[in-house]
Simulated scan of single mutants.
Amino acid sequence: MNRIVKLSMVIFFLSICSCRQEKAEGPDYYVIPVVDTGVEVHLYEMMGIKKEYLSEKTKRGKEDADYNYDSNQPSYTKLNSEGASLPDSTEKWALIRDNITGRVWEAKTADGSIHDRNTFFTFEEAQDHVDWLNSIKYGGFSNWRIPNLKELSSIIHFEKKFPSSNTDYFKNQYSSFYWSSTECVDDNRFAWGILFQRGVALNHFKKVRYCFRAVCIENEAFEHVKLFGDQTIRFKDNGDGTVTDYSTGLMWQKDCSKNKTGEKKKNKFKWHDARVFSEESDYAGYTDWRLPNIKELISIVDYRKEYPAIYSIFNDTIDNGDFMSSTPNGKSQCPYILPLKNGDFDIAGTPSYIRLVRNFTE
């Protein structure tokens, strides 16, 4: 039993006694477990540098590849058109189940059907497609949707490029833009999506045709969504400058404005300094802090807001800055960053803010 399921059981009993209910209207599908990024190689290895040639300070700065947790490693199962499991060796499948998030994805084909990867959709046509999938109960499911940006980013494999996904399961994947249901807050004529060329978030005009992959959710995962859609149950302010997110099993630094670096004590860090600072911090009495990977940073974004696009329990004074992750991009030799103004994520080498994270243990 992974730590997300364990925590769900604990918080379920707490929720029975909860007197405050601040749930989103309808299911909050933005509630989703954090899947590992898939990065297993260090940036210096991507650059062809041997570890013995690194400085001692550089060795102290751990990165994404140093923090792989077995319970959150990407895990998928191939399904047929009736929703039944298939062996990994099968060469033809209709659906892909994400065993970590409980989401079930439409498989793309190269057979000229409606599922063909060369069938492109406007935003409205993508909605028509999921309506059709629901009408025929495709795969035995009747809750097909356009995936939101968090769901779509959950299937990014950040070590892979062209496309940045696991093509052993997500076969016929283009390195192109794929629609999400997440509309731009400041202009709903545009919606967000993922460019799978390198795993970054972009937004596009809804009337242009792009790639699209539908998603639905299994019952157990839906219970997770219903429970933690109430933010008073999902988050706990620990009163010591930290916030626990029970839906992901992570503890966060609440106010990161006090993180300083260099002689001038600036808030913005270079990537190397950010990793060392995080690794050696004893903030709030804990000594196992780290720099979050990009998927962990995405987990605390509230895409229904902007300036800042973050859940309201994080009330620090840095509202709209770029936040740095421990996830490197090998080609650019820069980390992935997440700007809080709107929650998009990209690759950048400029100094950025940091927010400490650690695994929550009872």
Rank of each mutant, 00 (worst) to 15 (best):
I318W: 13
R290V: 01
I114M: 08
E125D: 05
T242Q: 10
W105Y: 11
A309G: 01
I217V: 12
K331D: 06
S113H: 06
L152R: 03
S113V: 01
I155C: 05
A110T: 05
K108H: 06
D88M: 06
G199N: 02
L54N: 00
T317I: 07
I114H: 11
F123P: 00
L133K: 05
T287I: 10
G199C: 03
V34G: 08
K260V: 10
E223G: 09
V215F: 09
S352L: 01
E280C: 01
R198A: 09
G262H: 03
I155H: 10
M9F: 08
F120T: 01
E151G: 11
G193A: 02
C19Y: 12
M9A: 14
V104T: 13
N219M: 06
N203W: 13
S326N: 07
R20L: 14
D322E: 12
E124D: 13
G262V: 02
I100V: 14
D128I: 06
S257T: 15
G139I: 11
R275W: 03
I300R: 12
L7E: 15
Y283H: 09
K331W: 03
F345Q: 05
M251H: 10
A191E: 01
G48F: 02
L338S: 07
P292G: 08
Y44W: 08
L291K: 08
I49Y: 14
K150Q: 11
E362A: 12
E56A: 13
N72T: 09
N320F: 12
S153I: 09
L149A: 09
V41N: 04
A274E: 05
N315G: 11
R60F: 00
I136C: 05
K258D: 12
R209D: 02
F12W: 10
D28L: 00
L133W: 00
D288G: 12
Y307C: 05
Q127R: 11
S15A: 15
D88K: 05
S181C: 11
G321T: 09
E263I: 13
E45F: 01
Q333S: 13
A274F: 05
Q231T: 10
F121K: 03
S247G: 15
L340Q: 10
G241M: 07
G61A: 02
L356I: 10
H272I: 06
V41H: 02
P351I: 00
E124G: 10
G26Q: 08
F345W: 12
M1C: 08
S278E: 06
W93P: 14
E125Q: 07
F170S: 00
D316T: 06
A284P: 06
K171I: 10
A201D: 00
K258C: 11
L133R: 00
S281H: 05
I354S: 04
Y30W: 12
Y53E: 14
T350R: 12
T109K: 15
R189D: 14
S154T: 09
P163S: 07
K50P: 05
E106D: 07
S75V: 03
P335V: 08
D319Q: 14
F196C: 00
N148R: 09
S8A: 15
T287V: 11
R275F: 03
V215G: 08
N72G: 05
S154D: 13
K331A: 02
P339H: 05
D168S: 13
G249W: 13
N188R: 06
T77E: 14
I337Y: 00
F235C: 09
Y30C: 14
G349L: 04
T58D: 09
V130L: 08
T77S: 15
